[in-house]
Amino acid sequence: MTTIQTSMPGVGKVIPKSSAWDRLRVNRNWLALWFMLPAAAFLLLFLAYPLFLGVWMSFTDDRIGRGGVFVGLENYEWLRDDSIFWLSVFNTLLYTLVASAIKFAVGLYLALLLNRHMPFKALIRAAVLIPFIVPTVLSAIAFWWIYDSQFSIISWSLIKMGLIDHNINFLGDSNWARASVIFANIWRGVPFVAITLLAGLQTVSPSLYEAATLDGATSWQRFRFITYPLLTPIIAVVMTFSVLFTFTDFQLIWALTRGGPVNATHLMATLSYQRGILSGRLGEGAAIATAMIPFLLAAIAISWFGMQRRKWQQGTDND
């Protein structure tokens, strides 16, 4: 009854709007439940449940083909004394840190270049993103061929230029293999970082730069005191995603080296696959996967911090 009264003309400008919502408030929660159901079903069945199941499995001695029993921390104790596991942790951290740092530097540089005025800008921007479109495994296969020990085009070119006198064993030597997979990862990640940062750069008003230039700011000062602070929140988010995907990378390594030579490029994800699926020790594989979670939580915390800061800069209701 009250809704009819308030929706009568002349009562006020704001009230009719809330009244339309009022009438549905009674059943809105139920309606929303039906709307949320398909998405919730997928996410609960195939994401939330496996996430907890994975943590549980890491406390069991599950194997493929037979159920496991609870063994407490045995898997983790086993891993603690396993030098290959620690090597994979080291590899993962090295891979993530080096690749992310270079992706950020090159990506930001590329974004700044693409933000300038030039002919065929749209075409160049579209071409830059292609490495991100093509499935990672397929481009990794191309890199495999480029890194071939006998017919590598890089070795061939360097020999022709007289810089080296024999082929580089890109994927056969530990350090070369690490450098090679990191390069391939950077190659794939730079377009993502560059294009998302470019989107952030395009929101920065040119008048800020003009004002700063009139005040005598150098190009470095313009970058440091205008571009960088305005870009910080989006940098935080983009780099969190980049770090997250690099840290949990699997396909690039699996297509290029499968963890070799002598485990030098094994990441935690590839080791988890090898132990869990190929060797069939599901419990141990799950323990390695679970060991990645603390790192992921740290990355998510940083992302959250970045988002809060963005809200603070733009006002809370600008979402």
Partner: peptide, 13 residues
């Protein structure tokens, strides 16, 4: 933010 790399083992079962 939950990556497939930590889900594939439990999902397989």
């Amino acid at each position: 933010l939950v990556p497939p790399s930590i889900l594939f083992i439990p999902l397989a079962s």
